[in-house]
Design a protein around this nucleic acid. Structure first.
Lengths: 339, 339
DNA sequence: TTGAAAGCGCTAACAC
DNA sequence: GTGTTAGCGCTTTCAA
């Protein structure tokens, strides 16, 4: 019955011919613009159906100067922090008629720049950038030509981009303050990527809490934000492990990567050393001892960012900067809380 | 110094005017087609640079009838199995000049169908589908109009798509055989999504091994392929836990989701019940006891799939079906191997 | 070595 | 209610 799929996909003109009308009428019917006779309408729909007609998105975009596509750029799709954000963003984008183009930059600024250019070529209507690693100048230059931008965990002039920032500073400060109250004094920081703004805010939080007690960081080293980074920190830390009785980690992956080497070296967590992560990825509640961390509502974050982006695309720049608070989740890598 | 970014992005005509040549010459220079005077060439490049000209991908695609974009469809981007595949695919796609459009279908067949249609609208040059959940007829109908398709973990007529399949059957059979040798007799299967072809192959592997010893599955229940699914299986299993001394799980997430409820119920792993996952996600080596599993080279899988896809796009359909073998990783949720 | 014309598939603006 | 014209930005074809 079925005819073979044509070599060339059917165009609006093919449908028009099949229905015995003009392309314009087909366009009107298919886009629900109204102003088409009932009978005509039926014939057009039938013809489109019969040909399995799908409008060519390029032609549409070229004409309309909008792609109905938005981009989201993440440092590393394998880091469990980001897929949830992507999912949240997609959840909002799709019902609004947007396709999400998600791009991985593998923690590489060059690549980040390249990807932003590519998204420009594809004429995305807007984009979300998670934890941009580019320096201010390059970032600004790269986003300037874009129609609408939202930055996650990166400050920027409101004119150029909306921002959603996690208040790591407050979150980390609260946790460190609590640990000090429990008697910890010698803090280390596994700082994550040096270029991360979020990393600097976490450090500020630690230092603010420490300063109030006349303390300062005894260990502060950057590392890749993954299990491997944690393992490397462990190797650096172990020779001078006695210097430290609490480690604050840039994220859960680092903390998790730290745990096994510590255990193998006979260091007890949390007795000898307390461990705190950040993000609350699923694995953190699965390991033993379960990891104390700052929970971030990742999917919400993605949803918010996308809502803000859609607003900006629509020219509504109402909410320009949102700050969300992380939630301390006290688990077993820190001493039991009193009460 | 800089002029404000224009409202309208510069076109090839703008560049042509600035350089005092025709659009055609600009096109030639920018695409490295050769046949342009040295001096002309220089002027064009300069003008393009000065205007920050970026060719409009739509116009290009509309004309060329190719988008230089390929799609990859995954059931759930939050499942750690898939981001690694995506990364592998991207690693191969980008140097070849392709942009990867990754789409999440949240384990929903309707959504899968919709996404395949959307990809068609966007005129992707080809696409990879991971663990398609559509039934054969709908899947075939959905991929038929696409130019090139590769299926991961799903069989198909070679004419319609290349395939890369993990030999779960053999992998699972080997593991179960080993467990039987260690004295396990009462096997359960946390089967994952009913629509998964991979799930059926795992079951076949279990049953083949059991049959050789006159045994059969005492527990076989579908579940979502995530931690939640494991927790639900645990709830169903616990009342009749004594019936079972080994659980084979569709994937590591399910196995991991199973572990905490079992532990809380006082069931010892592996003494009372052996546990086997599949995929070898990073968390599996972090928990205690560490999870025995079948390792799949996820990134390789993604790379292979993309290479096969690029071949098919280029009209080279040499390698049409690849089977890869999973690697049993014996860890602590199964009894120690002899030797 | 360079340019002019035509057209990819679609739709906004304006007829009829 | 429906059709015609023109043009989005680019490149292929052909001519100069």
């Amino acid at each position: 019955m079925d005819t073979k799929p044509a070599l060339r996909s059917p165009t609006i003109t093919d449908v028009a011919e099949a229905a015995g009308v003009s392309p314009m009428t087909v366009s009107r019917v298919l886009n629900g613009r109204g102003g088409a006779g009932e009978e005509t309408r039926r014939r057009v729909l039938e013809a489109a159906q019969a040909l399995s007609y799908r409008p060519n998105a390029f032609a549409k975009s070229l004409k309309n100067d909008r792609s109905n596509t938005v981009g989201i750029v993440v440092p590393d799709i394998v880091n469990p922090f980001f897929p949830e954000i992507i999912r949240g963003a997609e959840l909002v984008a799709r019902p609004a008629g947007y396709t999400l183009l998600s791009c991985n930059v593998v923690e590489d600024p060059e690549r980040e720049e390249e990807v932003l250019g590519m998204l420009l070529d594809k004429r995305v209507d807007g984009l979300i950038i998670c934890s941009a690693r580019l320096d201010d100048e390059r970032l600004l230059r790269a986003i300037a030509p874009h129609r609408a931008v939202v930055l996650i965990n990166r400050a920027a002039a409101k004119r150029h981009a909306g921002t959603i920032e996690v208040d790591y500073r407050a979150g980390v400060e609260a946790v460190v303050t609590q640990l000090i109250a429990q008697g910890r004094r010698r803090f280390g920081f596994a700082a994550g990527p040096a270029a991360s703004q979020g990393g600097r805010k976490r450090r500020e939080g630690i230092e603010a809490a420490l300063a109030r007690h006349g303390l300062s960081l005894v260990f502060d080293l950057p590392c890749t934000p993954d299990l491997q980074g944690g393992a490397e920190i462990a190797a650096r830390l172990l020779p001078e492990i006695a210097q430290v009785d609490a480690m604050i980690c840039y994220n859960d992956l680092i903390a998790l990567g730290l745990m096994k080497p510590l255990e193998q070296a006979g260091i007890r967590v949390p007795e000898d050393i307390a461990l705190v992560g950040c993000d609350d990825i699923p694995a953190s509640d699965l390991v033993s001892p379960a990891l104390t961390t700052l929970r971030i509502a990742k999917q919400d974050l993605g949803e918010m960012a996308m809502r803000m982006l859609l607003d900006r695309i629509a020219g509504r720049n109402a909410q320009q900067g949102i700050v969300i608070e992380p939630d301390p989740i006290w688990r077993a890598t820190t001493p039991r809380l009193p009460g």
